[in-house]
Each structure stands twice: as C-alpha cells, then as structure tokens.
Amino acid sequence: MVEEVFRAEYGRAVSVLTRLLGDLDLAEEAVQDAFATAVRRWPVDGVPPAPAGWIITTARNRAIDRLRREAKGREKHAQAALAHHDQDEEVPDVPDDRLRLIFTCCHPSLAPQAQVALTLKLLGGLTTAEIARAFLVPEPTMAQRIVRAKGKIRAARVPYRVPRDADLPQRLEAVLAVVYLIFNEGYLGRAELEAEAIRLGRVLALLMPDEPEVWGLLALMLLVASRRGARLRDGEIVLLADQDRALWDADLISEGHAVVRRCLRRNQPGPYQIQAAINAVHTDPPTDWHQVVALYDQLMAIAPSPVVALHRAVAVAEVEGPRTALREVDTLDLDRYHLFHAVRADLLKRLGEDPRAALEAALERAEHPAERDLLRARLRLAAAGQQDGADDHR
C-alpha cells in the first residue's frame, strides 16, 4: 500500500511542501521521511483514511521539527510561515502546485536534460534508474545530473511559481518534454502517471491557449491513452495491429481528433502536433501508411533524431517493404535502445531470416517486465520456427 501511495502521491506531496517551505531540498527530504515513517507504522497501525493527506501532514510536521532544531535565519523565516497552520489541519491540494514545480525545475539556468530529469524525480517519484532508462544513459550519469540541477536551483534562488506571460515561451519546450516523459512512464503500467500527464497537459492548454504545441502534446497523449484498454492482455503487451479496437476509448479518440483538427487550422506544425497527427491516422482504420510516412518525413525535417528515423522505418516497411526498411534501420546508432533490436528482429523475420540474435539483444536491453515477456514469447516462436525449418530439410 505504501508503494502505491508513493507512486501516486509523491509528486503532489513534494509540490505542496515546496510551496509551504520555499525549499526544494527540505521538501523532498521531509516527504521521504514521511514515507519512511509510513513503512514502519502503517503495517502496525493500519492505513489511514486519507493516506495522501497523512503523508503531507507528517512531512510538514517533520519539516517544522527540523526547522526548530536548526533555528537558523532562513529556516526561521520558513518556520514562521508554517507556524500559522494548525498542526491537525488538512493541507489542501492546490491545483497548480505540480505545475509550479515543473516550471521551477525547468528554469533556463539548467540544461534541458537536467530540467526533465529533475522534474521526473521530484514530480513523478521516479527512481534514478527509471529516469536513466528513459534517457538511455547510465544510472550514475543521471544521478550526477540530478544533484547538479538541484544545486543550481538552490544557488540561483529559483522562485517556485509559474513564470510571467512574457517568460512562458522560452520555458515551454522543457515543460512539454517533462509532461510527455511522465506520460511515457505510465504507458505500460502506471496509469496514475498517464492520467497526471494528461491533467497537466490540460492545465497547460488553459494557461497557454495560443501555443499550438501545447495542444499538440495534449492530442498526442489523448490518442495514445485511448488504446490503454487494449494495450495489455493478461499482463502481456498486445501490438497495435493485434489490438481489439472495440476496447479503445472512443471519447478520448474523439477529443484527440478534435484537438488535432484545431492544430491543423493553426498551420504552425511542431513535433508534438505531427506525432498527434500520426496517432490520429492510426486511430482511423485502416491505417494510411503512405500518410504516416509523409508525416514522419515532416517530423524528420523539423526534429530529426535516430528514434524518429526508427519509427519512420516501421512505416516504410509497410509501404516499400521490409528490405528497404532494414537498410534504413541498420544506419541508426541505437544499440542501447531495445526497440531498435526488436524492430530489426521483426524485419528479419518478414524477410525469412533468423531474428533470434536481434531478439536476444532486445531482451537484454528491455527493462519493463511486459516488454521482456513479449520478447521472450517472440524468441520462443522464432526458435520453434527455426526447428520446423530444420525438420523440413531432413
């Protein structure tokens, strides 16, 4: 139970405590102490009626105790700000607290990747290992980035607030990246992160209604989330082509398509808008693969990356065949990325070649249990197919 509350409420607790304390490090430490206390007490005393409120109140009390012990200038000021709250008063959830925390972590003084990593750590409660996996970097490298980012925020005295209107555009790219990575972490299991990312996307759309990329990200998340009900079967991943479309959420699809049309009318295409358009094509069967390739061409023109090129190659395989797609895939430097090897395996299989080495490489790099289960199943099928082929030649 503690782990479930941690996953769902860590970001809210850190956000609320940061607002109350004005100190990011102190807020995070207080929340961590509160969860450590929950691990000890809840199995004995039982889970409280409002677990999230218990965590926030306990964390606040821990922080007050620490400030009283240390009794230094800055801490005295924070203690005075806290003291007027009744100790038994429930701390309300301020709707924009998490958004304030995102903008704090996405201050221009931080490198873009550090901005995203720090926000995932503080808002999403992700482990350093999970964030390192999302960035395809070693865990120690990511740990150093997070420590340095927190140090810069402290040294620069970055305010905990949503920036003024004039400052919003320059902070937007990192904020959108944060929201999308939170969404991706919830893609295969943590529904609360997926829902939180969509909630933040809606808040951003209200805050910045004239920014087409904000709407593009919201549409992208809505359309991907619409397939959640069909994405897993008995805990195993179901690929898009094999999903039961009756399980897709028609309301989310309808809303996502409406937002995509809104973006098209603006005619200011950006990466999130194009990705949303690609997903809109996928949710309007049968998939028009020529249109998908054309959209990926547009995406490569404005935001080229090896990962985009990999996904484009998947669409190329449907239009020009697996041989052409494999040639494109083999030019990409994505050895650490499990999907690179999984795509290669699929293309090799379609060409009648042995995909087992590529599947083993994908399995070695995959982290999510559902992804590993899917790859193991494909390996078993590949091994059986090779055995059948050997029997045919006897």
Rank of each mutant, 00 (worst) to 15 (best):
R356T: 13
R350I: 09
P322N: 01
L332K: 12
H341L: 05
R356W: 07
V329D: 08
E360P: 05
L310T: 03
L351T: 08
Y337G: 03
R336M: 07
H341G: 06
R344F: 11
R344L: 13
R323W: 11
L348A: 04
V343K: 02
E320F: 08
A358F: 09
D333A: 15
L339T: 10
D354W: 04
A361M: 13
R323S: 13
A361G: 06
A313S: 13
E328S: 06
V343W: 10
D354R: 11
L347D: 09
L334K: 09
D330P: 02
L363V: 07
A361S: 15
H311P: 00
G321D: 00
T324S: 06
A325M: 05
F340S: 02
K349P: 06
L326R: 07
D330L: 14
L359T: 07
A309C: 08
R312W: 02
A342P: 05
V343C: 11
R356F: 03
E328K: 10
T324Q: 09
V329E: 04
R356P: 12
L310C: 05
D333F: 10
A313D: 05
R356Q: 14
L363A: 11
L347C: 08
V314F: 00
V319K: 10
V314Q: 10
L359P: 01
Y337T: 11
R323Y: 09
L351K: 11
D354L: 02
R312Q: 13
R327E: 14
A362C: 09
R327Y: 03
A325V: 05
V314Y: 01
A358K: 07
L363H: 10
L359G: 09
T331H: 13
R344Y: 10
V329L: 08
A317C: 11
D333P: 00
L348Q: 10
E360W: 05
T324L: 06
L334N: 08
D333V: 07
L348G: 05
A342C: 09
L347A: 11
E328V: 03
T331C: 08
E360S: 13
A309H: 05
T331M: 14
